[in-house]
Simulated assay, not measured.
Amino acid sequence: MSLVTIILNLVLPPLAVFLKHGLGKVFLINLLLTIIGWVPGVIHAFIVND
């Protein structure tokens, strides 16, 4: 995982997931988790961008 990916995971989790996986189910899940709370979105971004 690059430094840019780590920073994007922390600042804008949906953008980091979108850049890695595109617009799909994983992105929508991350967007929903980020809307519910920032921390769940960040955790999900780190898991899927491993």
Rank of each mutant, 00 (worst) to 15 (best):
V17A: 03
G22T: 02
G41F: 04
P13T: 00
K20R: 10
P40K: 04
I36N: 13
D50G: 15
H21P: 07
K20V: 06
L32I: 15
N49F: 01
P14Q: 05
P13S: 02
T5L: 04
I35D: 04
F27L: 15
L19A: 10
V48S: 10
K20C: 00
F27S: 06
D50H: 14
V4G: 00
G22Q: 08
T5A: 08
I43L: 15
L8P: 02
G22R: 06
L10Y: 09
F18T: 00
H21W: 12
F27W: 13
L32T: 13
L23R: 12
I29E: 09
L28D: 05
H44M: 11
L3P: 01
L33C: 10
I7N: 00
I47G: 14
L28Y: 11
V48L: 11
D50Q: 14
S2M: 07
V42A: 15
G24H: 04
T34P: 09
P14C: 01
I43Q: 12
L23Y: 13
G41I: 03
L3S: 11
F46V: 13
A16N: 02
L28E: 03
V4F: 01
L28K: 02
A16E: 01
L33Y: 07
W38F: 15
V17C: 04
I35N: 03
V11N: 04
L28Q: 06
L12H: 08
V11P: 05
F46T: 14
S2E: 10
F27A: 09
M1W: 08
V4Q: 01
L28F: 13
L15K: 00
V4E: 02
H21F: 09
P40S: 08
T5E: 11
V26M: 12
H44N: 14
L31P: 06
I35S: 05
